[in-house]
Amino acid sequence: MNTQDHISKEYNDELEQLRAKVLNMGGLVEDSFNDATKALLKGKVQLAREASKEDYKINALEVSIDEDCSNMIALRQPAASDLRNIFAVVKIVTDLERMGDESEKIAKFTAELSTNSHSMKFYNSLKSLVQNTREMLSAALDCYARLDAEKALEVLELDNEVDAEFINVNRILTTYLLEDIKNIEDTIKVMWCARSIERVGDHAKNICEYVVYIVKGNDIRHVIDEESRQGREK
């Protein structure tokens, strides 16, 4: 990634402001996800209610960043790393906005739970899923902030662990459903939350892929999936 200044100072400022906005949006998403999952793990209904109200800020930033990007494409005609950067930002904010939506869902389901999830038996497996996803999200945003493609390649591998943990949580919750008929409704809500947490991991993986695209110019999306599909067919 080229860090040398443009001849146009205004263009530099616009790109810097764009980056700052994306990082700001990333920070809000991270807070929203952390609050929602904290409420879920600790059974804090009030925190969950507050967390679910913050999503409008994330949505507003998505709209504003998209507008900035389309203006820059029209007025600056970006090329090479600038073009990749702006194109990737458009994609990144979509993933960030969806993460915001998933966090909102987690918060809403948590606020509706009649029992505290931490008193349920599966608490430990859920905690580990949350912890790993939080770390993954934080690391993905860090990779974008530093434009660190090498680290991004490591971070996106974490999604396999998150996926494996989600399957594990699902299995435990299914067993729980059979054991505790009284809490079926709550268990299904927690299942939805686990699903949302796993989706946040997927979106964080996407961000890592865009970072690699910005820095190296390679589109690595679906490459691993395609390789494993071809491997299976052989």
């Binding site: 080229n2 200044d5 443009h6 001849i7 146009s8 263009y11 090479a80 790393s81």
Partner: peptide, 10 residues
């Protein structure tokens, strides 16, 4: 050098 020229850098 190509990158610098086409992106309008110093």
């Amino acid at each position: 050098l190509t990158e610098n020229y086409i992106t309008g850098r110093f």
